[in-house]
Nucleic acid binder design. Structure first.
Lengths: 101, 101
DNA sequence: GCATACTATGCCAGAATTGATATAACCGCA
DNA sequence: TGCGGTTATATCAATTCTGGCATAGTATGC
């Protein structure tokens, strides 16, 4: 069981921790990152629902296929701004933006 | 009444239009702008509810008083990212982010 | 196999955003 | 009126984001 494993590790000089603690992220940081991931998934869904390739969708968003690929991949080089504008351009209403993943 | 005014204006060579049309903004553009305005208002509210000055709140967000002033003013030089991270840092949950103005 | 269509990744110059500093404007209050 | 506290505006160097090109990877049909 988990606590037993933890005890053994600590006895051996290890300390169990979370990625969040390891990287020193505040809960706000984590929420921000998760939000971007949710939006990136929604973006891919929105595009597929419209049966668009990345190239055609990228044209609608005035960007390139390569950037759209990164947007959908949740790449850190993509801002919330870009994700939100992408979703709005694909017709997802602002009220629905954050609904479920 | 409105249609009468419009008729007169058109007869005089004018054309009634909206700011949106004038600036050639898509509805997605408008939604994006309004979203930022909503968030900027919520940010000010969140700060006031906690009875913080801009200086103290800015410290929590790792930014300066001047930028926070712009964030609350809905200045175009402020990204959605910054607004969202600000709200999260003030404890507004991501689920509540877009609720009502 | 090998095309063809689609998506992912490396890269970078140009553009936009950021934190910071300085300073101005506003608002009670003595 | 002048003062202390708060918020707004101007400006800018440094950082971050963006579009786009090139190319690599992946899947499907022949």
């Amino acid at each position: 069981m988990k606590t037993e494993k933890k005890r053994r590790l600590e006895a051996a000089g290890w300390r169990e921790t979370t990625v969040r603690e390891l990287l020193n992220l505040s809960t706000a940081d984590v929420e921000y990152i998760e939000m971007k991931l949710v939006l990136s998934r929604r973006l891919r869904d929105a595009r597929k629902r419209r049966r668009l390739t990345q190239i055609r969708a990228a044209a609608l968003l005035n960007t390139s296929q390569s950037r759209l690929a990164r947007m959908e991949a949740g790449d850190p080089s993509v801002s919330l701004d870009l994700l939100v504008r992408g979703l709005l351009a694909l017709g997802v209403s602002s009220r629905d933006l954050l609904k479920a993943a």
